[in-house]
Simulated assay, not measured.
Amino acid sequence: MSKLTEQDIEKKLLHLPEWEYYDDAIHAEFEFENFKDCFSAMSRIAFECEALNHHPSWSNEYNVLTISLSTHDAGGVTNKDFQLAKAIEYIVEPEE
């Protein structure tokens, strides 16, 4: 998978307003009601990561989940990162 250009990344980010691009990765931060809800979302995301064989750099502090996505083999952001970001968005903020 090849690294996307900065222009391609910015264009794709228009569809993911929670995400920002810097330091050769896309980043997002999600706040939940409490730790349990945050950890529950992380568990659901983990299954998606395994299915895609693509794993984020992430952390949580109480009710805040911070995620960074980059494809290390490509040296930057690829379509695989956007595929996972969309899956994360669906898990974290499902359509009503």
Rank of each mutant, 00 (worst) to 15 (best):
H55M: 06
T71D: 13
A41Y: 02
S57G: 09
S40H: 13
L84V: 11
F47D: 13
Q83P: 01
H54I: 12
A46P: 02
T78E: 04
S70T: 15
L65E: 05
F39S: 03
S57H: 13
T66D: 14
A46I: 09
A41H: 02
N53Q: 15
I45L: 11
S43K: 11
W58M: 10
K80G: 01
I45E: 06
S59N: 14
Q83M: 12
K86A: 12
A46T: 13
C38L: 06
I88L: 04
N79A: 02
D81G: 08
Y62W: 15
S40V: 12
L84H: 07
D73A: 15
T66Y: 01
D81L: 11
F82P: 01
A41L: 09
A87K: 15
F82L: 02
D37P: 00
L69S: 06
G76V: 11
W58G: 03
D37V: 02
S40Q: 14
L65D: 05
I67Y: 03
M42W: 02
Q83D: 15
T78F: 06
S43Q: 12
A51P: 00
N60C: 08
S57R: 12
C49P: 00
V64E: 05
G76W: 07
H55D: 05
M42E: 01
D81W: 08
D73S: 15
A41M: 09
L84N: 04
A85N: 02
A85E: 03
S57Q: 13
P56H: 04
P56S: 04
M42N: 02
D81R: 09
A85L: 08
S68W: 05
E50M: 04
C49H: 03
E61G: 03
Y62S: 07
P56F: 09
D37I: 00
D37T: 11
I45P: 08
D73C: 01
D37N: 12
A85M: 05
R44Y: 10
I88D: 00
C38E: 07
A51S: 14
A87T: 07
T71E: 07
N53P: 02
T71Q: 06
E48F: 03
A87V: 05
S40M: 13
K80R: 13
C49Q: 12
P56R: 03
D73P: 00
N53S: 14
A41T: 10
S43R: 10
S57A: 13
R44I: 14
A41F: 04
W58Q: 05
M42Q: 03
Q83L: 14
C49N: 11
V64W: 00
S70W: 10
A74D: 11
H55E: 06
L69N: 01
R44T: 14
K80T: 12
L65V: 14
D81C: 13
S40G: 12
S40N: 14
I45N: 04
L69K: 01
L65Q: 05
S68Y: 07
R44W: 08
D73M: 02
S70Q: 07
N63F: 00
T66E: 10
H72N: 06
T78K: 05
C38G: 09
G75S: 09
L65Y: 08
T78S: 13
H55W: 04
T71P: 03
V77K: 07
N79V: 00
K86Y: 03
L69Y: 04
